[in-house]
Amino acid sequence: MNPPFADVRAVLFDLDGTLIDSAPDLGAAADKLRTDRGLPSLPMEQYRPLAGAGARGMLSVAFGMTPEHPEFADLREEFFVNYEACIHQRTKVFPGVDTLIAHLHQTGTGWGIVTNKAARFTDVLVKATPLFSSAGAVISGDTTPHPKPHPAPLLEAAARMGMAPEYCLYVGDDERDIVAGRAAGMRTVAAMYGYLGTQTSAQHWGADAAINSPLELLQLISAP
């Protein structure tokens, strides 16, 4: 019996919470904003669920602050400076990602990265991770005029890889990933081991499948 996505020719991945566990560095950058102001440090467990939301998520945890707050822009830039200083001190690929990427490479299945992270951060992380050198496309949040959940970044990745969207699979750990994938005409997989956010339950995102570890993806795309 063929796996459900046997016809997939390329797999696109979100970055934070899907390929890499960047929560420790994102949380540390946000927590430094607190300690620099004489506020007590918060436990990493509070930052982790919103790590996929970047500065917006981290500032909401650290200060209960939304983008509408008058100090948001200044604190966001200070957060970015903090993050650049520690961007890959604690960040690691999730267990099994190395084996997964190696399998895709060996079987001739294209793969790429589509993230809402700004290129100033994405490029540093990709260069610092030799495993990612075989990516056929790396699309950041500012590569196209619209970030996810708009389908533009996913369609740009497919175009750069010379793949029709219907032969692409998108894997992500946030509802916007699934929304973007569906809008792009791709099939989607929810990475249940990721950050998942704090909004709707992942079971209601409408993904075509869900995985609890990176290597479970192989069961969906490859015959045993």
Rank of each mutant, 00 (worst) to 15 (best):
A6P: 08
R9F: 00
L12F: 10
L12H: 04
F13C: 01
F13K: 00
D16R: 02
L19H: 07
D21R: 05
D25E: 11
G27R: 08
G27H: 06
A29Y: 04
A30S: 05
T35C: 11
R37S: 07
G38D: 12
L39C: 10
P40C: 10
L42K: 12
L42E: 03
Y47T: 02
Y47F: 11
R48V: 13
M58Y: 08
V61Y: 06
P67N: 08
H69S: 14
F72D: 09
L75Y: 11
R76D: 13
C86Q: 13
I87T: 09
H88S: 14
V97A: 05
V97E: 01
D98T: 14
T99C: 10
L100P: 08
I101A: 07
A102S: 13
L104C: 01
H105K: 11
T107M: 12
T109F: 08
T109N: 04
T109M: 15
F121E: 01
V124M: 12
V126W: 07
A128H: 14
T129I: 11
F132W: 06
S133A: 15
S140P: 01
K148M: 07
P149C: 10
P151Q: 05
P153D: 12
L154R: 01
G162C: 07
G162L: 12
M163A: 11
Y170N: 03
G172D: 01
G172H: 00
G172K: 02
D173V: 04
D174W: 07
E175S: 07
E175V: 14
D177M: 11
D177H: 02
V179R: 13
A180D: 09
A180H: 04
G181K: 01
T188I: 02
L196S: 02
G197M: 04
T200H: 14
S201N: 14
D208K: 02
A209V: 06
I211D: 04
L217T: 00
A223V: 13
